[in-house]
């Protein structure tokens, strides 16, 4: 009897997972279409190139329909915030910056990556819960992974439906980045910027070079 009671939530969760994966993910479901008012954005910035790409995509969005925007930055990132303000000056009142520990510095070993990713994951929960983004836009920095995993979990558990959008970096001509390979399985919309990549990753959307 108790075993059955224990099994029930697990079964429900599995059913929800299957439903989410097969029918809801990546589709403009009713719950996405019927959102009212402007869409709340969360944009994850990394250092250098990733930030350039994210900001140029962001500038193309209609600020009346996509606002406010919360930028998530790695703790060690000093230049991205300044660049974001400079790039999107029409939105100053509707911008916010939050910081998260980096999940992986370049050249960090895999074991310590596991630890720092855990730490980043813990700090991602309050950020996603507080900001309740309708859309997450990420362009590749490792910081994406914990934020997107938490947002995915919240969508699965009906806490908050967030459409996770990943745009693979323009640098990736032949292969996906590690972040891309992970998020391929979690995001709703996955853009690549080279046609050959869309052949090897069928769920990927290829519209040409975006940035």
């Amino acid at each position: 009897m108790y075993a059955l009671l224990l099994m029930l939530p697990i079964l429900l969760l599995v059913a929800r997972l299957i439903y989410f994966y097969t029918l809801q993910r990546g589709r403009p479901e009713a719950d996405v279409r019927n959102m009212r008012g402007p869409r709340r954005l969360m944009v994850i910035l990394g250092s250098g190139g990733h930030t350039t790409e994210a900001l140029s995509l962001l500038r193309a969005l209609d600020t009346k329909q996509y606002r406010p925007v919360t930028f998530v930055l790695a703790e060690t990132d000093t230049t991205s915030a300044v660049r974001a303000v400079a790039a999107w000056d029409g939105m100053k009142d509707d911008m916010k910056f939050v910081k998260i520990p980096r999940s992986r510095e370049v050249h960090q070993s895999w074991l310590s990556t596991l630890l720092t990713t855990g730490k980043a994951l813990v700090s991602a929960f309050p950020i996603v819960y507080r900001e309740k983004p309708d859309i997450i836009l990420c362009c590749g920095p490792g910081t994406c992974v914990p934020i997107c995993l938490v947002a995915w979990l919240f969508s699965l558990l009906f806490v908050q439906r967030t459409v996770i959008t990943f745009v693979e970096s323009i640098c990736r001509v032949q292969t996906l980045s590690l972040t891309g390979k992970i998020l391929y399985f979690f995001c709703d919309i996955f853009f690549v910027q080279y046609e050959s990549l869309s052949h090897s990753w069928p769920k990927a959307v290829y519209l040409g070079r975006l940035v």
């Binding site: 996405v32 279409r33 140029s56 193309a60 323009i170 040409g208």
Partner: peptide
């Protein structure tokens, strides 16, 4: 230059905007 506008219209479509 790349076409961020294509990205924007894809998103608008997705959200029914």
């Amino acid at each position: 230059p790349g076409r961020p506008d294509l990205f924007a219209s894809y998103m608008d479509n997705f959200f029914g905007l």
